[in-house]
Design a binder for these strands. Structure first.
Lengths: 133, 133
DNA sequence: TTTTTGCTTGACGTTTACGTAAAGGGAAAT
DNA sequence: ATTTCCCTTTACGTAAACGTCAAGCAAAAA
């Protein structure tokens, strides 16, 4: 039973996601999350948590908040008119291109780190991970 | 012939890399690049270009400049004492972990974009204008 | 020689993404 | 009843990453 879902306070959310209450309020001001209000207090539902997770991931990916807003807005677009959808598809494509660029950057950087590490271990005559005999 | 390498002016570099001269000067102030000086003018060598590329890639990856400095510094560490090398290896490992987290974020996001796009195209089938069978 | 062009160094302005301090409401514990 | 929490808004502060003048030098073009 219990179609009744859990809710969270701002402090619980802040602690769990490792951000401050100030950050959360700021995100709300920016329209990135829209927690329910019971009187003056904020009540966080599962959907707010999903939103917040999207936002934080976007941050880790190096997007700024305005870009992140456009990303999260994509996730609950009401299916609109064809022109709208076409526009949305364009934005998805652009977003995908950016992400793939970033992924490529990561591959290159990881490969370079491998190389630095290899030279480094050669110099130090330290065995590679787990291969010390 | 010509062990003599090309050099570039600040304007050429700025244009080629799509940044302003102000940005380049800022990066120099921060010690991210160290172009030669001929009197008062800056002369950019290939190594400065490599550095700058590292910096810009770091930016695309969402690292801030202080992190980027630590990254680029890893690339021309003189092979030092074992303790130093071990420390460098630790930093490389940390950097790698961050990059792999970002890569994971990207995979998740790309998958979600696929899903949004899929729903989106499904909606477009019944949309009045964008109908394509 | 004068002008133009490209570069230089300050120095202050701006935006983003919050931090922090002030002042207080409301409920719950003592 | 009063203290203690947790939360609230308002408002000003700040660090990062540049942008934007302002003023000037120096070589090259006119």
């Amino acid at each position: 039973m219990s179609g009744i879902e859990r809710t969270w306070s701002i402090a619980e959310i802040a602690l769990e996601f490792g951000v401050t209450h100030r950050t959360i309020r700021f995100y709300e001001d920016q329209g990135l999350i829209t927690p329910e209000r019971k009187g003056t207090q904020r009540i966080f539902h599962p959907r707010d948590r999903v939103r917040l997770e999207l936002v934080l991931r976007g941050k880790r990916l190096g997007f700024d908040l305005s870009q992140i807003r456009r990303i999260v807005d994509m996730y609950d677009q009401p299916p609109g008119e064809a022109g709208q959808l076409r526009y949305l598809l364009e934005r998805i494509a652009a977003r995908r291109a950016e992400l793939e660029q970033r992924r490529h950057d990561i591959e290159v950087t990881l490969a370079e780190l491998d190389e630095v590490e290899r030279r480094c271990r050669a110099d130090a005559e330290i065995a590679p991970k787990g291969r010390r005999k």
